[in-house]
Design a protein around this nucleic acid. Structure first.
Lengths: 193, 193
DNA sequence: ACTATCATCTTTACACTGTCAAGATGCTGA
DNA sequence: TCAGCATCTTGACAGTGTAAAGATGATAGT
């Protein structure tokens, strides 16, 4: 696949245009024709690079996942030990999407709900990130010389993932405000057992 | 809003048609015109009941949320004490959506990922449900005479919600198979501290 | 009983979408 | 030079959301 022809690199340009559209006006406004227009190319040009609208969407998701992985890896690498790496990963798993809720809505969908966790007032009321989590968790076990059954390990791993993912989801689509402070408490509580 | 006119109750019929379409061919195939056709009504008739396609979607979401609440409430009511009610609620929070992944994809979005938690093999690799959770959790605290700070309670509550929601999300969109056994372990582990 | 009102529904129209088929364009290798 | 091919354009089509204008029939006030 030559990268240089009439346009230069239309494939990448279309992905970037798609991301721009999503960030500026949400996934609902993403269309092949608009992405093509941004690239100053006819409305059928994308079909030389993507079989489908869906293939463009998948390519965009892959790109966002790469950006996500960069932030997660950086968080892990900046940590002194595996335990703090796990907590940092959780922080950034949530923070990455909280910073751009439209990314989460695009990656994992959309639904706006309102809920309050505050109890002191009366309100009504083949996925690389997982691979990284798994590796970091195994390092953590080795570091602490913890002896757990396979079942225990699997359960704990799934629980860590579900917590991070659920927290990100809730933070993006609900009125719940999260903070690093909370995330720290949640993820370190999950490990201290 | 009279319930009886030409059609009978077009509003409800459109919601039901929408749910049917989603269950049969996914959200992508949901269109106002198809829903109208199922109800044997012209393509513009829906506009007498919904301002928008989006308003129909919101109405469908509200209906699904009601069904969801019925299952959660039943789970809570069938439990002997608040602790088992919490675990049961978690089980059904996940099970409701695992039974119909298209519902979850519709309610909270879509992305298919593949991941494996098994460690013994070498794979590559103003929301009513929350209100119910909150009430059940407070009952649990009272029942056990647990003395926790407000912060601790808030953290634990958020952690419970995030775990259930994240587990449901992961179960619906990834290759991870979940089971009541696992959910039990996860939710009871979360409480036993 | 007559009529005005109003919610409900139909018809028509338009811009926008994804996708396909046919053709143009220009690089690349034989 | 020329054939082949990836790339891109043009034109067409069905399906979509939505607006405007009109038909229909229940209901309420007189």
């Amino acid at each position: 696949m030559s990268d240089n022809y009439h346009h230069g690199n239309l494939r990448k340009a279309l992905i970037d245009a798609g991301i721009r559209i999503i960030n500026e006006s949400g996934e609902a406004n993403l269309s092949l024709r608009k992405a093509a227009a941004i690239c100053k190319v006819s409305h059928s040009a994308p079909y030389a690079h993507f079989k489908d609208k869906n293939e463009l969407i998948e390519a965009i998701k892959a790109t966002v996942t790469e950006q996500f992985m960069e932030e997660l890896s950086a968080a892990v690498n900046a940590s002194s030990d595996a335990e703090s790496a796990l907590v940092n990963m959780g922080r950034h798993y949530v923070a990455f999407f909280v910073r751009r809720p439209d990314y989460f809505r695009f990656m994992f969908g959309s639904l706006n709900i309102t809920a309050h966790i505050r109890l002191d007032k009366n309100y009504e009321n083949d996925y690389p990130p997982f691979t990284l989590l798994k590796e970091t968790y195994l390092e953590y076990l080795a570091e602490k010389h913890l002896d757990k059954s396979v079942e225990e390990k699997e359960t704990e791993l799934l629980r860590l993932w579900a917590s991070a993912h659920g927290l990100a989801s809730i933070a993006c689509m609900s009125g719940v405000e999260t903070s690093f402070e909370w995330e720290d408490r949640i993820f370190s509580d999950l490990l201290l057992r």
